[in-house]
């Protein structure tokens, strides 16, 4: 337990030693700020005048806040693999994994420690992104419950990215391959959602399997325990696979 926390804090600290973490935070914030600005602009000049006369018109949370989180989820699909590739594949390539391997730690300690470090980074990321929609609270009234659920959805989505990325990092010989394969896998799940929602031959199963469908229901402001369980199973599943993979390596 303490070893796990030691690994997690050290990994997180190391992440912020590298320019990678800072560039990711900076670039994501910059892109989302541009998108946010455009969305606010659109809301004020096109949506608001149209919605003025309607009953039950979509509010600022529904149109604006949710859109920011959706964009964040899409962009981070391409960015999270860059973080997860460091976790195991890069350590292997740099031959530093031996340090953890020959220390008296269980594989579970190592994997969970690394996952917790990623969770720490995700929390920072979601916190930073949430500042933008929250800033609207200065000028208008926000649906905080809805915003919170959307933020939780993003957090769960990114955690699932991290778990899947960690597993792919464990099976990849090289960091670049790990990043590419993780991106491919995450993108595949997105395509699965798009295919499932297809007008001609939709598939409920595809939509259910894809992590994006569950994310969207969070964005709608619905907290369904089935979605939460989906993410928990997804995360636990990939973490167990990672532990098994690394244990198998040790046992030959």
């Amino acid at each position: 337990m303490t070893a796990m926390v030691t690994i997690a804090t050290t990994e997180l600290k190391r992440l912020f030693r590298s320019p990678l973490a800072w560039s990711i935070l900076g670039i994501i914030q910059f892109i989302l700020a541009l998108i946010f600005f455009k969305l606010v602009d659109e809301f004020i000049y096109t949506i608001q005048p149209k919605a003025a006369g309607l009953d039950n018109a979509p509010g600022v949370t529904e149109t604006l806040v949710v859109a920011v989180y959706l964009w964040a989820g899409m962009i981070l699909l391409a960015v999270m693999p860059l973080l997860t590739m460091r976790s195991i594949a890069e350590e292997r390539a740099n031959k530093t994994f031996v340090l953890l391997r020959s220390s008296p730690l269980s594989t579970t300690d190592i994997v969970l420690g690394k996952f917790l470090a990623l969770i720490g980074f995700i929390l920072i990321l979601v916190g930073m992104i949430s500042l933008m929609p929250l800033s609207l609270a200065l000028g208008t009234s926000l649906d905080f419950g809805h915003s919170l659920i959307a933020a939780l959805g993003l957090f769960l989505l990114l955690s699932s990215f991290a778990a899947a990325g960690l597993f792919i990092s464990a099976i990849s010989p090289q960091p670049t391959i790990a990043a590419l394969a993780s991106f491919g896998f995450l993108f595949f799940l997105l395509v699965l959602y798009i295919a499932g929602k297809s007008q001609t031959e939709g598939s409920e199963l595809f939509v259910y399997l894809s992590h994006f469908g569950h994310f969207l229901s969070f964005l709608k402001g619905i907290f369904d325990s089935a979605d939460l369980i989906y993410y928990c199973l997804f995360i636990i599943g990939f973490l167990v696979l990672t532990i098994r993979k690394l244990d198998n390596e040790r046992l030959g």
């Binding site: 030691t6 050290t10 030693r17 740099n94 031959k95 530093t96 340090l99 020959s102 220390s103």
Partner: peptide
């Protein structure tokens, strides 16, 4: 066991003292 592999397993972005402190914690 204390092990020095062929390539010293050190994180490039940590200082000597931090590395040793990390190792001390990991080895309990």
């Amino acid at each position: 066991i204390g092990y020095l592999p062929e390539n010293p397993p050190l994180y490039q972005d940590m200082t000597v003292y931090e590395t040793l402190l990390y190792c001390a914690k990991l080895r309990g």
